[in-house]
Design a protein around this nucleic acid. Sequence first.
DNA 1: CCGACTACTTAATCCAGGTTAAGGGCTACT
DNA 2: AGTAGCCCTTAACCTGGATTAAGTAGTCGG
Lengths: 191, 191
Amino acid sequence: MEFFLAHIRKQVVLSAEDAEILTGYFRSRKLKKKHFLVQEGDMNQYSFFVVAGILRLYSIDPNGFEHIIQFGPAGWWINDMQSWLKQTPGNLYIDAIEDSEVLQVSKADIDTLYARIPALEKYFRLLAENAVAAYQQRFVSSLSQSAKDRYNSFCQLYPTLIQQLPQKHIASYIGVTPEFLSKMLNQSNNQ
Amino acid sequence: MEFFLAHIRKQVVLSAEDAEILTGYFRSRKLKKKHFLVQEGDMNQYSFFVVAGILRLYSIDPNGFEHIIQFGPAGWWINDMQSWLKQTPGNLYIDAIEDSEVLQVSKADIDTLYARIPALEKYFRLLAENAVAAYQQRFVSSLSQSAKDRYNSFCQLYPTLIQQLPQKHIASYIGVTPEFLSKMLNQSNNQ
DNA sequence: CCGACTACTTAATCCAGGTTAAGGGCTACT
DNA sequence: AGTAGCCCTTAACCTGGATTAAGTAGTCGG
């Protein structure tokens, strides 16, 4: 919880009392590697703050291939935003890449909290605006760069994740097959 | 201004007084087709609400090709979020596809307004959260679908834009060349 | 310590979509 | 009315990355 509060306090001021109220609505949840937090068709009642470990948000296409939309390392939020906002069944999956721990809040509780702690409104506005900035930049990358350039951009942007993630997940994120990423990396090593 | 206020009031409650204060900070700006609102390297002091016409947000890659990240028809907001948030020079362009009219606010003024009108904080939170939802879904589409499927998804999501936009801009948005889009559309018509 | 997964590699073949180039029909100035 | 620019089309050829298939390690549960 300390980690969580520190994270919020990087953006907004929170009194001790606010912090008390806030933490009352969050529930910790531990998750083993490969276990699901959210599956397609779920009502996404919850949004998740990652305390430890690393999660992934992804879709599965009609041919059974997975496509990673976002990673969720410690200190990040992760959810299926469309499903969460509209409270309708979602089309995305969230699971743990490693054993992880998250804090979850329900949509209803967050709406209650907005009324009691106005600073939260600002916190989540900034959070969402930063996410928009990141998605805009990722579209620049995905629309204008080759696979190799996208890989390099990814390395620059998330240097710590490179060590932590299996290669196939990086392939899925940058939008190539694991086979092609493997070929690509070995080609550039050998010459 | 009426159109603008109505748009905000779809999400949050705004007193007559709030509305008065708010509109004082926005400035109308008319823009001829092909004229720029923002160019690469600009300090993006302003964010834009589109009152009439249609704009585009795009990048230009090292080979001179344009890649459209988002369209801005009437009733939408448009800006280079990264540059706007951090107040650093941006790498994106915004220009008018048709003669258009926008309302602009500076970052400093918006920050002032947040303090005076708390409802605005909520309005922009919801706006950004909806944008995140849209970007997540667009990544699903761009990572898992073929060019033809992406075109169909675009038609379903923005049926009115299809009529309004030149084909080459749609090609740029879905991530194919104008030549390929043309071939694709004519093939499916003839059989 | 064994067997079954899972992660990664290599290589042959294939195809969606890019590139280049040329021509035709608008619209819009002058 | 003429001409300069778009914008769209068509077609031949090319390539980045997908697909398929097989093989090699590593690792983890029992």
